[in-house]
């Protein structure tokens, strides 16, 4: 059962392409990686901004993942005894909980949350860290900290 291109959103397609771009980069296949990157930019350019989107919508989607999405996926992975899927679900669920907590903290503290501190994201698993310096090893996926990158505040 392959995924059906016709039923995917533009951003799903973009993520599929950046995933394969990374897979090619890991095999040192630069031209192949560039082609997947071009495809990913094409799909990213197709998406439309949702004018009425809010952080509350975002939080609702994240909470739905935590209450149902991950639960059903974990049940399926346990039933099939699929350790690869269980691994991805464990990492993704932990990172999703951190995103929920980030949004909850931002809702209370607003710009004070990151006024005097950095925010970091692990490029391997999506782990999020608010603080001065990220941990030496990612607490979720155990990658060394050179793969954990700061997201800077940018002026427009």
């Amino acid at each position: 059962m392959d995924a059906d291109v016709r039923q995917m959103t533009w951003t799903e397609l973009a993520a599929l392409c950046t995933n394969l771009e990374k897979a090619c980069t890991k095999q040192l296949k630069e031209e192949e990686a560039r082609a997947f990157a071009s495809l990913a930019s094409f799909y990213a350019s197709k998406r439309k901004a949702q004018g009425d989107a809010s952080l509350d919508d975002l939080l609702a989607l994240i909470e739905a993942d935590l209450s149902t999405g991950y639960r059903s996926a974990n049940e399926a992975a346990n039933y099939a005894d699929d350790r690869g899927a269980k691994r991805a679900l464990l990492w993704g669920e932990k990172a999703t909980k951190l995103l929920k907590s980030l949004l909850a903290r931002y809702a209370k503290q607003k710009e004070a949350l990151t006024a005097d501190t950095g925010v970091f994201v692990c490029e391997i698993c999506g782990f999020v860290y608010v603080g001065q310096q990220p941990p030496e090893v990612c607490p979720i996926c155990k990658v060394p900290s050179f793969k954990i990158h700061e997201v800077k505040k940018e002026a427009i």
Binding site: D2, E12, A15, K22, A88, L102, G126, V128, V151
Partner: peptide, 29 residues
């Protein structure tokens, strides 16, 4: 500050989605 938080969510969500694709049969080109 809001834009920074949004970039964090965008980046992290993309990484999680890529990993899910990897586990869905698209691990290599």
């Amino acid at each position: 500050a809001l834009r920074q938080i949004c970039t964090v969510v965008e980046t992290s969500s993309r990484i999680i989605a890529e990993d899910l694709w990897r586990e869905s049969g698209y691990i290599i080109a």
